[in-house]
């Protein structure tokens, strides 16, 4: 129960203007928690596909992801804040992806 209240506190501070007054109701909390669990589960399962590149890297990646999840939980509020409609943010990620693609495809293949 203690964990649940902590979680609700975090959610209130993210999704509400005033933590005291804002009502974060049960259905919202549960959907955020389920989103969190789905995110963790599917990222961990997706990390297993790294075995096609190299098995050792997969083990490192999965263990690293597990440790990461332990320390940064809850992720959804952070993701929600990061994944917003701000133009500067979008442009930053677009250019970052462009740079990654350029580097991977020019130097990384063969």
């Amino acid at each position: 129960m203690n964990m649940y209240e902590k979680l609700v506190q975090t959610l209130k501070s993210t999704f509400g203007q005033d933590p005291e007054k804002t009502l974060v109701n049960g259905s919202k909390t549960s959907s955020i928690v389920s989103a969190e669990l789905v995110l963790m589960a599917s990222v961990l399962v997706a990390a297993l596909t790294i075995r096609l590149v190299s098995p050792a890297l997969m083990i490192v990646a999965v263990i690293g992801l597990m440790l990461l999840f332990m320390y940064v939980t809850p992720i959804m509020p952070k993701l929600y804040k990061e994944h917003n409609d701000d133009f500067n943010n979008m442009m930053f990620y677009a250019v970052l992806t462009l740079a990654i693609f350029a580097i991977v495809f020019y130097w990384g293949v063969f």
Binding site: F15, A35, V38, S42, L79, Y80, H83, V104
Partner: peptide
């Protein structure tokens, strides 16, 4: 691989953001 990776990220992010 790039297509697959981006698609999987899109699936996960899309559903998670839809939930909140």
């Amino acid at each position: 691989m790039a297509m697959l990776a981006v698609s999987v990220i899109a699936m996960i992010l899309g559903i998670c953001m839809a939930m909140v």
